[in-house]
Computed example of a mutant assay.
Amino acid sequence: MKQIYFTLFLSFLTTFLFAQNQKLNNLLNTNYNARELPPELTDYNKIGGGIIQKDYGIHQFRKENIQLLLLEQITNDGQNNITNYILDYLEIEMNNSDDYIAYQLCRYEGWTNDLIVAKVMREDKEYFNTVFQAWQINMKTLKFEKIEVDKIDCMNEGWGI
């Protein structure tokens, strides 16, 4: 009997996760205006974002304990009509109140690399060096790629304030 319940639970969980991923996969290769988010993002709160290289940026969203990062190509028609084209996304589970997503401020072997995104532990020091997960944006494929966490640290932009 336990085996039947377990099998049903796994089936439900797989279906639920597939539906969630499919919903986010629908975002890929779509355009949106930052003032009008796509329907797939209505359950999320916008946290922020930034430009990582000319015409490319990251938007960061949160829903419960999940952070969603969108890699986007940004275009401006010259009349301040900005369009975001979604290239890739990362879903990152935030398990602890000290978990923090750092980007634009990370270093590899002491050298700044604005293409690194890292899940780090928030600490009261100049650089976060407890890195749980890290990705680098591949500017040829325009995708997030998982990388090793050793030799990565990220600046604590609030340190000393």
Rank of each mutant, 00 (worst) to 15 (best):
L70M: 08
G50D: 13
L69K: 04
F61W: 11
G78Q: 10
N80G: 05
N80C: 07
I74R: 06
L69E: 02
E72Y: 00
E72W: 02
L69N: 02
I74S: 03
L69F: 06
I74K: 07
N65Q: 11
I74D: 04
G78W: 09
I66H: 12
Q73G: 02
G50V: 05
T75C: 03
L69S: 04
I51L: 14
I52V: 14
K63I: 06
L71H: 01
Q73P: 00
K63G: 00
Q79D: 10
D77C: 11
I52C: 10
G57A: 08
K54I: 10
L71D: 02
E64T: 12
Y56V: 04
I74C: 07
N80E: 13
I74H: 02
I51H: 09
E64H: 14
T75K: 13
L71V: 02
I58H: 04
E72P: 00
N80W: 09
N76K: 03
I66N: 12
K54S: 14
I52T: 07
D55K: 09
D77L: 08
L71Y: 04
D55Y: 09
F61M: 05
L69P: 00
E64A: 13
Y56R: 07
L68N: 04
E72R: 01
T75H: 06
I51M: 14
T75M: 08
H59Y: 10
Q60S: 12
N65K: 13
E72N: 07
Q73K: 11
I52R: 08
T75A: 12
L71E: 03
E72G: 00
Q67V: 11
D55L: 09
G57R: 00
D55Q: 13
K63C: 06
H59E: 06
I66M: 12
L68R: 03
Y56C: 03
Q79Y: 13
Q79V: 05
T75N: 14
Q73V: 00
R62I: 09
Q79N: 15
N65S: 14
Q53K: 15
G78F: 07
T75P: 05
Q53L: 10
G50M: 05
G57H: 05
I58R: 03
D77I: 09
H59T: 09
H59P: 00
H59M: 06
Q60H: 15
R62P: 08
G50R: 04
